[in-house]
Design a protein around this nucleic acid. Sequence first.
DNA 1: GTGACATGTCATGTG
DNA 2: GCCACATGACATGTC
Length: 739
Amino acid sequence: MLSLKKYLTEGLLQFTILLSLIGVRVDVDTYLTSQLPPLREIILGPSSAYTQTQFHNLRNTLDGYGVHPKSIDLDNYFTARRLLSQVRALDRFQVPTTEVNAWLVHRDPEGSVSGSQPSSGLTLESSSGLQDVTGPDNGVRESETEQGFSEDLEDLGAVAPPVSGDLTKEDIDLGAGREIFDYSHRQKEQDVDKDLQDGAEQDDTWSGEGAEALARNLLVDGETGESFPAQFPADISSITEAVPSESEPPGLQNNLLSPLLTGTDSPFDLEQQWQDLMSIMEMQAMEVNTSTNEILYSAPPGDPLSTNYSLAPNTPINQNVSLHQASLGGCSQDFSLFSPEVESLPVASSSTLLPLVPSNSTSLNSTFGSTNLAGLFFPPQLNGTANDTAGPELPDPLGGLLDEAMLDEISLMDLAIEEGFNPVQASQLEEEFDSDSGLSLDSSHSPSSLSSSEGSSSSSSSSSSSSSSSSSSSSSSSSSASSSFSEEGAVGYSSDSETLDLEEAEGAVGYQPEYSKFCRMSYQDPSQLSCLPYLEHVGHNHTYNMAPSALDSADLPPPSALKKGSKEKQADFLDKQMSRDEHRARAMKIPFTNDKIINLPVEEFNELLSKYQLSEAQLSLIRDIRRRGKNKMAAQNCRKRKLDTILNLERDVEDLQRDKARLLREKVEFLRSLRQMKQKVQSLYQEVFGRLRDENGRPYSPSQYALQYAGDGSVLLIPRTLADQQARRQERKPKDRRK
DNA sequence: GTGACATGTCATGTG
DNA sequence: GCCACATGACATGTC
């Protein structure tokens, strides 16, 4: 039974808290209110279970709590109430499901982000993930434009005679190890933003210049920004299955290049911009439960791609979206994912090949084509229409990783929304922990003096603050601080000398309820005690098990201080302080103190009894006193344990929240890294593929050929059909595994 | 007068 | 069976 109770009290409570943390809303209140009294009692315990208690005995401090009882009282008083409310509130964390605080970053000079931009994929319900953020907008454009382009491209069909004898047009080993994909161009790629600004001016002309650019056949190095003769259309989008391979006007092929670039989630300076914005917004960004996505992709002001995701027009936004618009200069107005600016990023310097029609869709969610590099930039998920026509892509390791991570992110965010977990709060919480050595987290909503006392008490082992501090903190509850509060429990069992004095005083027979009243007054107003000189020296005993001798010396005023006139007052006071059992003991002429009766070991207690000739009534009373005294201490300890349990639970909850916040931040970091990697791969793919020439010196058609990683790290040029087949195979494998 | 709170006490269960 | 302890339930006093 005991174990069951313990399980129910602690286990259920902890379980409930854990459920609430993982997003399962457990409405404890419904159980606690009235409908299920047993559970209420189990969890909350008796009405006084979580209230202040006095722990009068040191000997019985549990589990090495080792706290001075006097300090425990006050600490626990406030902490218990606060913790109880927190524990109850754990299941009440409610955040409007779709309440989103989005920061719109828009450039003033070039036109602020239109009001419709808030509708960008910020909605979390439908698209809390990265994919959805860009999805709606992209998908439409993709489906509309890609199909036409790809179809045209297929007809273009670059027949590729072997450039060299070793290479066949079907399987050309580039001989380029992965080292070819070094990131030497990284730096220049980071200049994309600069190029973007320049490119923004070219936006309008790009689409019209598409044919011209193709004619010029200049290819811009996506990373270096250098223009070089493009001997074949650098159309990677057509490479992927996502793009239906159909005849396409040559001029449009170039347009397909941009999606690759846009598919890159963000330029390399995204990180810096991200952090800059974060520094500005601090953790407010994360305050949005869904925010991680928005922040991640919309925050970087200078990142056209990211802004596109967040600001993509035409994207429905859910009801409770609060937009925090941050004006940032330098951002073009239209950041649609497929806007020319974005598309031009990788090839910013070259206007020739950049006229990319916003048809190609590569969203953040785009997965890397597995071994098929072509598919890398045109993930099936995003290129819905394209995939349908072109067939599944080859799974991409990075793509899968990214997808999974993003899905996790989505789910994580959803979880955060559901459970009302506020990353900001969590992070702030963590900061508090970091700064504060950890304990007083709730100083804000706790009494002013609580933090310190709570800190001591929150540790279940009860490191215990000094009695003085505890008394000061407790005073807030009783509206008046009192150094004598710690003496409040002095109604306990008196020492020998006390008893003797009382006996001398006589008269005090029977229970006098006023004693407790007086004691309460004592801590309410210290001045009341100060009025009584002898009370200044009355050390109220909080500990039943303190040695009587010690009590004698500490509690009793010096005889010299006692005046004849005050003896009576003292007697009355002490008499009032006596417990009922003490009065009874006195009345029954019990020859020893209640302390001894209660605290002596059984053997010693029996010896003590044997030393005296006691009547049955006296023996019965002594046994009752002993029983009640022990039970009294037990009750106090029990209540203390309850408080400690709550404190431990609070600490556990705080730890879990802190861990959760940390994991969220880590996840954001990982996603950022993945996006960067993806962008790099895209650029490299584009570069490599664009440099390939068939035997006639013409570039390969992305619709017919694709690059593929070989097992040895080399890159192969294979027909798209073959790449598609391999992609399908690899797609099946994971599915089979799941089954 | 009433409710909340603190504390003590009893009954009961456990080891 | 006794003892110590734990704990729910209740009683009582105080504010």
